[in-house]
Write a protein that binds this DNA or RNA. Structure first.
Length: 475
RNA sequence: GGCCCCUUCGUCUAGUGGUCCAGGACACCGGGUUCUCAGUCCGGUAAUCGCGGGUUCGAAUCCCGCAGGGGUCACCA
């Protein structure tokens, strides 16, 4: 039994959203769970569409998610090179073999002529098939001309690991271009040669290629190559549920999520469960659990909608369940700049209080700011509070003064603060909704914060009393 | 238009002839948790399983038809 080898073969067009990476994830999982290899191959056969820097971008995306590959353009391997533009000689050699067998021929028509065929076909409501116009006399390889595959149309039935048994008709098979006039191969040709030479055992790719499979099957035959196993992954749809996920419908580049403080395991768990589950009621999976439990056969056949709300939930779940020290390491670049003067211990305590409330790490900045800097007095916090807005200024000052008085006697341990404020509640005959709210607002000037006692404890006595004073002075 | 694929709560899904007048999760709505937000706990709304025929004692599950949606028909991948 030979080892499973899968690959991710993106073209460097500069953008990798969650849907594309999901395909990579599935291929990676299949390889890892079988102790096989995962290969990164760059399909840069279209110079016009290539975007500067996107290879680095792809590599970074994979690595950031923990999807390491065994062979690839930057690390090489036994079947390199791993950029198609570095393999042009190989494609030409294989194309010539096809010519020799009489299974490939030079393009005969001009672009305009072909365009006219196409219009003609459209008019008569028929699919455009180039082979209907195939010249009687076929020319061999001609420099400067595209090279076409001479197809042998027939029906096929084959098995797809996800879609199951599929049947296709000969109408799907045509004479397609294998080598462009600039000498570069097309995807349709290059990937077949490369997968063969790189000994890929399973092709995992998205469903827009499904309609092309009969063509590929025909080419495998002509080349006398045994086709690998196919696993076609359905598209990921945008939130509207209509069209494929694209930039338009808030499909962020996958790296953007990392930048906003989404955890890599939250992302992989989300991507995997977009169209896959293990048949149990488990909803969230670590990367290791995915390796253990993933099965390509259980991937859904219908396209899934991208629901960012679910991703946000999953991310919060991972944050809450992460060890505080680990979370602190990950949080490094998300603190407000005012935090730089504070030591690790203090920041770690702040993070401990905020951990339960973070959906993604970039929220840290706003949620933690008052621990590092005194905020401006925010009058609306009292004015817009139905219970507080009815109090007279005099009453508020009285309550805050009493609070300050009480707190000034505290040793500022959480328990002590709690006990003293509870006593004060009784003494003043007040509800927490009044007294605690006032203190919370005075000390944080924020619409939300962690628990009052813990917050005051962290702020410390001096800072707490100072902030209450300032609130009093504002009336 | 040809070829191909898909169709269970708003969303992700469980489900492969009876235990499903359909289960879980997200979202949403109530309530508890001494203050806010979040979390957490408890509860709720939500799918006549795309539609129509069959087969069967019995169908989300099998068969046939239809409809809707999507993909593809490039010297893009």
């Amino acid at each position: 039994m030979n080892k499973i080898r899968t690959r991710f073969a993106p073209s460097p067009t500069g953008y990798l959203h969650v849907g594309s990476l999901r395909t990579a994830l599935f291929a990676w999982l299949l390889a890892r769970q079988n102790k096989g290899q995962f290969i990164l191959r760059i399909e840069d056969t279209d110079k016009n569409r290539e975007v500067e820097g996107s290879i680095e971008h792809i590599i970074k995306s994979l690595k950031s998610l923990g999807l390491n590959y065994d062979e690839g353009p930057d690390i090489n391997g036994p079947y390199g090179p791993y950029r198609q533009s570095d393999r042009l000689d190989i494609y030409k050699e294989w194309a010539l073999k096809l010519v020799q067998k009489g299974r490939a021929y030079a393009e005969e028509y001009s672009e305009e002529e072909i365009e006219n065929f196409r219009i003609e076909a459209k008019k008569s409501k028929e699919p455009f098939l180039y082979r209907n116009y195939r010249p009687k006399e076929l020319k061999g390889y001609t420099k400067g001309k595209a090279l076409r595959f001479k197809s042998d149309p027939k029906d096929y039935s084959y098995n797809d690991l996800i879609y199951g048994d599929l049947k296709t008709s000969k109408e799907a098979i045509d004479d397609f271009i294998i080598l462009k006039s600039d000498g570069y191969p097309t995807y349709n040709f290059a990937h077949i040669i490369d997968d063969y030479l790189m000994q890929i055992t399973h092709i995992i790719r998205s469903s827009e290629f499904l309609a092309s499979v009969p063509k590929f099957l025909n080419l495998y035959e002509a080349l006398d190559i045994k086709a690998p196993q196919f696993a076609t992954v359905p598209a990921v749809l945008g939130p509207d549920g209509k069209k494929k996920l694209s930039k338009r419908d808030n499909a962020k580049d996958a790296l953007d999520y990392l930048k906003e403080g989404y955890l890599k395991e939250a992302l992989t768990s989300f991507m995997a469960t977009l169209g896959w589950n293990d048949g149990t009621e488990q909803e969230i999976f670590s990367l290791n659990e995915l390796i253990e439990k993933f099965s390509i056969e259980k991937v859904q056949r219908s396209p899934a909608n991208f629901d960012e709300k679910r991703l946000i939930y999953i991310n919060g779940y991972f944050i809450r369940n992460l060890d505080l020290d680990k979370l602190y390491d990950l949080s490094k670049e998300f603190w407000p700049k005012e935090a730089s003067g504070y030591d690790d211990l203090y920041k770690k305590k702040v993070l401990g209080l905020l951990k339960e409330r973070l959906k993604y790490l970039s929220e840290l900045k706003d949620l933690s700011i008052f621990f590092f800097r005194e905020l401006e007095i925010n009058e609306s916090l009292i004015k817009d509070n139905s219970k507080l807005s009815v109090l007279t200024n005099k009453k508020i000052i009285e309550l805050l003064s009493a609070s300050k008085e009480t707190l000034s006697k505290s040793n500022f341990e959480v328990e002590d603060i709690k006990n003293r404020l509870n006593d004060l509640l009784i003494k003043l005959d007040q509800k927490p909704a009044i007294l605690f709210s006032l203190i919370r607002i005075a000390t944080t000037q924020s619409p939300s914060s962690p628990g009052l006692f813990e917050t005051l404890n962290l702020l410390g006595k001096k800072e707490t009393l100072k902030r209450i004073d300032r609130q009093i002075a504002a009336f």
